[in-house]
């Protein structure tokens, strides 16, 4: 089956299941309806902006840009750069694996590669904006701070154990 059609199968299935459930339980219709409407509206006001930002970042921040800047600095500054570069690209983290490999082959520090991948995975800028919108500033900032601390510490741990002939 065509991949484009295939991805709609679960959508249609879930829509049908929802319809049956709502038919069987009329009192669930109001909370279902208002919630679906609420969250759709919430997304409509931010999603176009976030996607535009992601589109811009994906075109203006190239893999070459990242490779050129990551690994050129050492020490704390290098780690900070790794964090920063990780927050700029778009796309799921597996898209970063080939970049990470190129960086490692070029001799970049393991800790910095780990930081770059972690930042890419969970503190990308467009993602943080959506988090701010849906979960609030307190949640977003605390998660960001704790993530930076944990990832920094763990990057040193991973670096220590990653080297083995």
């Amino acid at each position: 089956m065509n991949k484009k059609i295939k991805q709609w199968v679960p959508v249609i299935a879930l829509a049908l299941i929802s319809a049956v459930l709502l038919y069987l339980q009329p009192e669930a219709r109001t909370p279902f309806g208002t919630t679906v409407l609420d969250y759709t509206m919430e997304l409509i006001v931010v999603l176009p902006a976030v996607l535009l930002l992601m589109g811009l970042l994906s075109l203006f921040i190239s893999n070459q840009f990242i490779s050129a800047h990551l690994g050129s600095e050492s020490g704390l500054k290098g780690m900070a750069v790794a964090f920063l570069l990780g927050t700029l690209p778009t796309g799921p983290v597996y898209m970063a694996f080939p970049i990470a490999r190129t960086l490692r082959d070029k001799g970049a520090r393991v800790a910095n590669i780990y930081i770059f991948l972690s930042a890419w995975a969970c503190i990308k800028i467009p993602q943080e904006l959506v988090e701010l919108r849906f979960l609030g500033a307190e949640f977003m900032i605390y998660r960001l701070v704790f993530t930076v601390i944990m990832v920094s510490l763990l990057s040193l741990f991973v670096e220590k154990f990653a080297h083995k002939p």
């Binding site: 991805q7 959508v11 459930l21 279902f32 208002t34 919630t35 996607l51 075109l59």
Partner: peptide
């Protein structure tokens, strides 16, 4: 254009998530 393409890419999952949230509140 890239943004529009990304939107189409996540649209099925987006609808699934919204439906799930609706079901969560309904049932």
């Amino acid at each position: 254009k890239v943004a529009a393409k990304m939107f189409l890419g996540i649209l099925p999952m987006l609808i699934i998530i919204i439906l799930l949230i609706g079901l969560l509140f309904g049932f």
